[in-house]
């Protein structure tokens, strides 16, 4: 479980996150939603330890994040746009991450096969398309069967077939008890995958709960309209 207590983050005079308290339930797919610039990526970066200067505390499985990097053994992360050293081959990248995690066994290589990445293994990263780099990034995030998966707009840049494969994998991992946190601007994805929603507006958490709760609260007829209604500030 990820627990965030009174998180505040500013960049100079700009307050990006204003006192967020949030519990991300274990074994659930939680979708962080909010307009551009609402603080979603900053929140994810704080959980991943990429942001150092903030107020408040973040607990992962009950342990406070305090600069020790070992907790990230339990986390798989897929960024919005990945990039790797351009002269390394795909095989080198997989070997490197396995080496760094000291884990060469009990690997989940399902995505490597379903994305057909075996064919790309000896190609250098600079010769791959943006979509293929995203596939490599997705395969790396799932490779070590981490307990927590953080996916930042995971299907952006993927073709519909690959996007479907990734969504199936997300559902499969969730049914195996994994906690999944993801962001996306695609409403159909939200409807298809999300179990819980954390709605962030201008750095504040303005809704936390299930999809149905959100629809009930806004009184709108579907999820898309409910999300739009929150974005327009109709729900405080």
């Amino acid at each position: 479980m990820i627990e965030i207590k009174n998180l505040n983050k500013s960049y100079g005079s700009l307050n990006v996150i204003k006192g967020i308290d949030l519990k991300i339930e274990e074994g659930k797919i939680t979708y962080i939603v909010g307009p551009n610039g609402s603080g979603k990526t900053t929140l994810i970066k704080a959980i991943l330890g990429l942001i150092k200067k903030y107020e408040g505390s973040i607990f992962i499985n009950g342990e406070l994040i305090n600069g020790d990097s070992r907790y990230r053994n339990n986390i798989g992360y897929m960024p919005q746009s990945a990039s790797f050293p351009e002269n390394l081959t795909v095989k080198n990248i997989f070997e490197m991450v396995k080496d760094l995690r000291n884990n060469k066994k009990s690997l989940d290589e399902e995505l490597i096969f379903s994305f057909n990445l075996e064919k790309e293994m000896n190609k250098r990263l600079k010769n791959l398309s943006g979509g293929t780099v995203q596939k490599v990034s997705a395969a790396l995030a799932f490779l070590f069967s981490p307990q927590i998966l953080i996916l930042d707009e995971p299907t952006a840049g993927l073709d519909p077939v690959s996007s479907g494969i990734l969504k199936d994998k997300i559902l499969k991992e969730n049914s195996a008890g994994k906690t999944i946190l993801f962001t996306s601007h695609i409403m159909s994805e939200l409807e298809e995958l999300a179990q819980n929603i954390a709605f962030i507006l201008e750095g504040k958490l303005c809704f936390e709960g299930s999809l149905n709760n959100l629809i009930q609260l806004t009184g709108e007829k579907n999820l898309e309209r409910s999300v739009a209604s929150v974005m327009m500030g109709k729900v405080a």
């Binding site: 992360y77 990039s83 991450v97």
Partner: peptide, 15 residues
């Protein structure tokens, strides 16, 4: 040039 890669590496369990 390696900014995104550095970010990726810092999400791994390395200090």
């Amino acid at each position: 040039n390696n900014k995104n890669y550095i970010t990726f590496m810092l999400t791994q369990p390395i200090n």
